[in-house]
């Protein structure tokens, strides 16, 4: 049984180390230092924050101008 527990804790530790390592990689390459930028990376010049990008067919962005930029917060 001792060996079982050793193995279990061993794998937990190995696993923890690998996770920390991957996190370290992410930090080293700047993937954690710019959350704002990462969060905004899904937007484009022509699909900026503040603009809805999905509508029922026929509604379109011209359907309700209040849904465009500046209408919230």
């Amino acid at each position: 049984m001792t060996l079982v527990y050793l193995l279990i804790w061993g794998t937990w530790i190995a696993f923890g180390i690998s996770t920390i390592w991957a996190l370290h990689w992410a930090a080293r390459h700047g993937h954690l230092s710019d959350p704002e930028g990462a969060a905004r990376s899904i937007f484009d010049d022509d699909e900026p924050p503040g603009q809805m990008t999905d509508f029922f067919p026929g509604d379109g962005p011209d359907g309700d101008p209040s849904l465009m930029e500046g209408s919230h917060d």
Partner: peptide, 9 residues
């Protein structure tokens, strides 16, 4: 907002 496509509003 960038101006490119926002004239729709």
């Amino acid at each position: 907002p960038p101006t490119s496509d926002s004239s729709a509003s």
